Computed example of a mutant assay.
Amino acid sequence: MTAFEDREKAFENKFAKDQELAFRIAARRNRLLGEWAASLMGLTSEETDAYAKSVVQADFEEAGDEDVVRKLLGDLVSAGIDMDEGRIRQALDDKAVEARRQFMQQG
């Protein structure tokens, strides 16, 4: 292999690793967000676990965060919680920071 091919392969590996890490952080963020919403709704620990998993799954419906925001807003309002999109987006940002911090502490 030439030096150029080695360098290209290294960039490809780094890109793949970065993408995997971004996916894992987003999944962790969504789980934390689901746990936050579940606590607002007063769910049991078993219900919280199932709900957090459903929030992670909701993120696969479409690109971006709109699917997660829509799910949380609908679920929280249906549960009688006074909630708006702005508070959910703030929680999304807060949980993203927390998820990144958790991954940095692991490594």
Rank of each mutant, 00 (worst) to 15 (best):
L43G: 00
E98C: 06
R28G: 00
F11P: 00
V56K: 02
G34S: 07
Q19H: 05
L43F: 14
Q105M: 15
L72T: 03
R31W: 14
R101Q: 13
V68G: 01
A3M: 11
Q105A: 13
M1W: 07
A38F: 04
T2I: 02
R87L: 13
K53G: 04
D93F: 09
S78Q: 12
G107Q: 15
G74E: 08
L73E: 15
A63Y: 10
A10L: 10
L73H: 13
R29S: 04
A96K: 09
Q57Y: 01
I81W: 05
R87V: 04
F60M: 06
E35Q: 14
D49G: 07
G80H: 10
N30Y: 11
M1E: 12
W36R: 00
V69N: 06
G64M: 09
A16Y: 03
V97N: 05
R28L: 13
K53S: 12
S54L: 08
K95A: 11
A10S: 05
K9M: 07
N13T: 01
A52H: 02
W36V: 02
E20A: 14
V97M: 06
A63D: 12
K9H: 09
Q106N: 03
V55N: 05
L43S: 01
A10N: 07
G34Q: 04
K71E: 07
G74W: 04
E61R: 12
E61H: 05
T44K: 05
E35G: 01
G80E: 12
V69G: 03
T44D: 15
E61Q: 11
D84H: 06
V77P: 00
N30L: 03
V68K: 00
Q105P: 00
S54Q: 14
D93M: 10
R101M: 10
T48K: 08
V56T: 11
V55Q: 02
G42F: 06
E12F: 09
A26K: 07
A26M: 10
Q19E: 15
Q106M: 11
I25R: 09
A91P: 01
K71V: 03
R28H: 07
